[in-house]
Design a protein around this nucleic acid. Structure first.
Length: 599
RNA sequence: GUGGGAGUAGCUUAAUUGGGAAAGCUCAUGCCCGUCAAGCAUGUUGAUGUGGGUUCAAAUCCCAUCUCAUCCA
């Protein structure tokens, strides 16, 4: 072990420290060897400081410095000196000074790293994950994880001040197959029985409310055994909260306060509150998604009613079969034919069968200027029809109108994504902005065609709006849930609801979901029982911490804010998990593998 | 599960129509007292993911398979 004791870190020395004797410990980022002078960029988690080895100051350390390689761990002693005129490095916070070394100790050498440790070096994702211990040395990832730490601390401080109690809920719980797939853990002492890892602490936090804790929170790992994406990992972290004797406004207030504090602590950004609210129906109708990005316009416009008798059968037939015709107006886009072909194939990803487009044009018609539509299909629309369509969009000459006619779902999916695509293509998104909105009044249930029954949009304990109670049996699809999602820049970062705390309402909802009494008893009996022992009205919310951090740092993937993420096939390239277990382990668990019949 | 994509030197990428496997960085050696993604010179490095097939000839075409990222369900 080195007998050098660190006096400063590599990010803190400034001009005011000039002539101080210092000892720095860290990793070699780069060596620039001039034969005479040797420069070292010494790196630790706080930053980079340039160290100079000069033979006239100390020829022993200078001679040693020729042998230094990237990622060696070294300690140096020396004095701080202002850099000579013209050699200040303005890219470094420490760029005005350097440390003139008079002693060098190589604490631990390093193999040649497979890639250079620097933010600007471009390395493939799997190399980075394979060598995560090196990847994590990169300043950007260090910064991300330090930000993550700050967010944990600020969350705890704020929620503590608001009277929340942090409680840990179990990681080994009962599997309740509903929604996403559970990760299962076999029980050795109970052969043939399995625990599940929690997808959320939902039931436990409601029990804590029944138990009278009134305000609970937890920064908690959750698990879902589902296919992964750039913003989904098999294990992810939530900031989970639940409160008693509250309504939606209380949840909004606490949440808005939390976001304000987190953005201040993490980014030094002031977030304006309260957040705007939009109903689920309005979001779906204007944006085609329940998590719209409202930093820009390009809202969807419905012309279903205008084209029900259109001669253009693609439109009228869709209307006849209860579909929709909706469009987007984009101003003066100068689309070429191949641009439009591309957009057509773009919407086909979302199962749209086509994209109808029109250019708005001013033409001279019998000596009168009129604004009409131009398109290969314009001939199917009378002048009057064209005019009402143009009016509805408030379209101007040179605008393009792009339409999808299909089922409501396909129209929404394809146009929501087309809207985002166009906004990116034409730079309509103010990238610096953090735009929070609440999406409220989502439906309580939706009909699942595969299962031939209604399923919860949120979960079965979500309370319906009181005014909608009478529709639970008659028009379940119209019952609004007392649920709310928090959406930031078009990404859902949180969601929650006011819960059902009355047994009779809970039973009506179970009945609607066709959850039989026995099944309910088996799955959630403990919660139902708890509801009957004086459960307070309560509700809560949970935030996806990884997504929130990803948006804060502007990363493409949540992998950039997670220390040890998994690949798309849920493997860890560094540790090679998951891995086979030996027969003795399997035998202890009373498990036999049957690998052939996996389908 | 599905679609289109990628896999070539330690890393990042190139290779025209099926014809001699390249470059930059890293690395090694040397020069160099103000560089900072240092510079200059010289040099090392490859079963082109794996397994088959077509062909006089395959990084390139075909089949299978594995891995990674991305999208859809």
């Amino acid at each position: 072990m080195s007998n050098l004791k660190r006096t400063h870190n590599c990010g803190e020395l400034r001009l005011k420290d000039e002539s101080k004797q210092v000892t720095l410990l860290g990793w070699i980022n780069r060596r620039r060897d001039h034969g005479g002078l040797v420069f070292i960029d010494l790196r630790d988690r706080e930053g980079i400081t340039q160290v100079v080895f000069n033979p006239e100051v100390d020829d022993i350390s200078h001679a040693q410095a020729h042998n230094l390689k990237p990622e060696f761990v070294i300690g140096i002693q020396g004095h701080v000196k202002a850099r000579p005129k013209g050699t200040v490095n303005h890219n470094l916070p420490t760029g005005e000074i350097e440390v003139i070394a008079n002693r060098l100790e190589i604490i631990n050498p390093s193999n040649t790293p497979p890639f250079l440790i620097a933010d600007e070096v471009n390395v493939s994702e799997d190399m980075r994950l394979r060598y995560r211990f090196l990847d994590l040395r990169r300043p950007a990832l260090q910064k991300n994880l330090i930000l993550r730490h700050k967010i944990y601390q600020a969350t705890r401080k704020y929620l503590d001040e608001q009277g929340f109690i942090e409680v840990e809920t179990p990681m080994l719980i009962k599997s309740t197959p509903e929604g996403a797939r559970d990760y299962l853990v076999p029980s050795r002492v109970n052969p043939g029985k399995f625990y599940a890892l929690p997808q959320s602490p939902q039931l436990f936090k409601q029990i804590l409310m029944c138990a009278g804790f009134e305000k609970y929170f937890q920064i908690v790992k959750c698990f879902r055994d589902e296919d992964l994406r750039a913003d989904r990992q098999p294990e992810f972290t939530q900031i989970d909260m639940e409160m008693s004797f509250i309504d939606e406004e209380d949840i909004f207030k606490v949440t808005e306060g939390l976001m304000k504090v987190l953005f201040k602590a993490g980014m030094n950004i002031e977030i304006a509150t309260p957040f705007k609210k939009i109903t689920f129906n309005e979001a779906m109708s204007k944006y085609g998604t329940d998590s719209p990005d409202v930093r820009f316009g390009l809202e969807l416009v419905d012309i279903t009613d205008l084209v029900k008798d259109s001669k253009f059968q693609v439109f009228s037939k869709v209307v006849a079969s209860k579909g929709q015709v909706k469009g987007i107006r984009i101003q003066n886009p100068n689309f070429s034919r191949s641009d439009l072909d591309f957009l057509t194939s773009f919407v086909s990803i979302y199962r749209a069968k086509g994209l109808a487009w029109f250019k708005v044009k001013e033409i001279l018609n019998t000596n009168k200027k009129v604004v009409l539509l131009e398109s290969p299909i314009a001939k199917f629309f009378s002048q009057e029809e064209q005019t009402v369509i143009i009016d509805r969009f408030k379209a101007k000459p040179n605008d393009f109108l792009l339409f999808v006619a299909d089922t409501a779902k396909v129209v929404a999916d394809s146009l929501a994504n087309l809207r985002l695509h166009l906004a990116n293509k034409f730079n309509l998104i103010p990238k610096e902005e953090f735009n929070f909105i609440w999406v409220t009044e989502a439906p309580l249930v939706e009909y699942d065609e595969e299962e031939k029954r209604y399923v919860s949009v949120h979960h079965p304990f979500t309370s319906p709006h009181e005014e909608d109670y009478q529709m639970i049996e008659t028009e379940p699809g119209k019952v609004r849930a007392r649920a709310y999602d928090l959406v930031l820049n078009g990404i859902e970062i949180g969601g929650g609801s006011i819960r059902i705390h009355r047994r009779d309402i809970q039973e009506r909802v179970f009945k609607l979901l066709r959850i039989e009494e026995e099944e309910a008893e088996e799955k959630f009996g403990f919660l139902l029982e708890a509801l009957e022992y004086g459960a307070p009205p309560h509700g809560g919310i949970a935030f996806g911490l990884d997504r929130l951090l990803r948006l804060m740092v502007g990363a493409d993937s949540i992998r950039e804010v997670i220390a040890f993420p998994k690949t798309q096939s849920a493997t860890c390239l560094m540790t090679d998990a998951p891995f086979e277990v030996n027969n003795r382990q399997l035998k202890e668990l009373s498990i036999k593998l049957d690998l052939k019949s996996t389908d």
